[in-house]
Simulated scan of single mutants.
Amino acid sequence: MKTAQAYIGKRLGVMDIGSNSIRMMLFEWDGAGFQHVEKFLRTTRLGKGVDASGRLSEASISRSFDALSELMDIAREEGTQEVYAFATSAMRDAANAEALTGPAREKLGLAIDIVDGDTEAKYGFCGVSSCFSEPVVIADIGGGSTEIICGSREQGIAWDKSLNIGAVRETDKYVQSDPPSPQAVKDIEGEVREKVQALLTVHPKPSGAVMAGIGGTITTLSSIAQHMAVYDPKKIHMSRLSYETVCTIQEELCRKCNAERREIIGMDPKRADIIAAGTTILKAVMAALEKPYIVVCGHDNLEGSAVCHYGFLQ
């Protein structure tokens, strides 16, 4: 088995195959940190319909395979020597996950690791905790699931839970109109609140921890709050969103239709149809945890999976 030392100076990659998008990070490791980092994103909606059918659709498989092929071409062109790919909620839940993992392995030479919720939480925690000296409670809102992780850099993960609530899943489940009906929004909030409250009957409420957030919903909300005509990851990283700001943006998003949401400054147009549900999830989680603000972290499960898979220490 290779050690971290063996990877120093080599071009490496990690890939997160999520329910809404596939993300890839290419980088080099100098023994102390990531260098020459490039990130890529392709929106594929792999998880669309999985909650209802328990299967990946042919269309989402096709979109995702094409995206994987394109990203692997980029990795090869850059001389990347190894790519670690992991898949999360949609692939965990789908009975036909092999319909994507098989062709990826046979035609692209890409082995996909379908990780469980605890591993997904570990990756997110490793990415985020390096940015905080104090204890943190992390909300990782994805397309198919939301991970809540509590811990600190010194002590590691105290507890974590993967909840089957996500921006794509909740949109599929509740949103039947454009804009979403008040009842749909209420139903999403109710489900999230119920699941987080159940979690807090088992684990202590992280009253002394800073709340940190990762995932496309949260970074998009920061971009909207900062009125970013051009997305700037440096301004996103470690920015803050107050609970009042999240509520204000959520009300606007739920009031507007998809076409109107796409025109909001700072909005990722490809996320416009699921952002109302994603923001509703964040609002409900913050309320349940009684957190007045959330710190948006630009280091997430891409950095975390690299640290864990390649054996790096930060």
Rank of each mutant, 00 (worst) to 15 (best):
I17N: 07
H36D: 15
M15N: 10
R23M: 07
A32D: 15
G33C: 04
R42V: 08
R42Q: 13
G31A: 05
L26R: 04
K10G: 02
V14W: 02
K10R: 14
M15G: 09
D30V: 02
K39G: 03
I8N: 05
F34H: 10
L26Y: 00
M25H: 12
G9Q: 00
N20H: 11
V14G: 07
M15Y: 02
G18L: 11
F27P: 05
L41A: 13
F40P: 06
V37K: 14
F34T: 09
K10A: 05
Y7A: 04
V14E: 02
G18H: 06
K39N: 13
F40M: 09
G13Y: 01
T43D: 08
A32C: 04
R42N: 12
I22Q: 04
N20G: 08
D30Q: 08
H36R: 13
D16M: 12
D30E: 13
A32I: 01
M24E: 10
R11E: 06
L41N: 14
S21E: 01
F27N: 07
V14S: 04
M15E: 03
S21W: 07
G18F: 08
E38R: 14
I17M: 13
F27R: 06
A6E: 14
F34C: 08
M24Q: 14
R11H: 11
K39A: 03
D30Y: 02
Q35E: 15
K10W: 01
R11W: 00
F40G: 06
R42C: 09
H36K: 15
F40Q: 11
L26T: 05
L26C: 01
L12H: 07
D16P: 04
G33R: 09
I8V: 11
K39M: 12
A6P: 00
Q35I: 15
D16F: 10
M25W: 08
D16A: 13
G9Y: 01
G31H: 07
G33F: 05
T43Y: 09
A32W: 03
G9M: 05
N20P: 00
I17V: 14
H36S: 14
M25C: 08
E28S: 10
R11N: 10
K39S: 05
V37W: 03
E28F: 00
G33P: 12
A6V: 00
L12Y: 03
D30K: 00
G33I: 03
A32R: 13
V37Q: 08
N20Y: 05
K39C: 11
A6F: 01
G18S: 10
S21D: 03
F34E: 11
L41H: 11
K10E: 09
I8D: 08
E28P: 00
L12E: 04
L26H: 02
S21C: 12
V14H: 09
Q35G: 04
W29E: 10
V14K: 12
I17F: 08
N20M: 08
I22R: 02
G33H: 12
S21T: 15
M24A: 12
F27K: 08
R11S: 10
T43S: 14
V37F: 03
A6H: 06
L41M: 14
T43Q: 14
I17P: 01
S19A: 13
R23W: 06
D30R: 00
G18R: 10
N20L: 06
D30P: 03
L26P: 03
L41Q: 15
Q35N: 13
K39T: 13
K39L: 03
M25Y: 07
N20I: 09
S21K: 12
F34M: 09
S19R: 12
Y7R: 02
L26K: 03
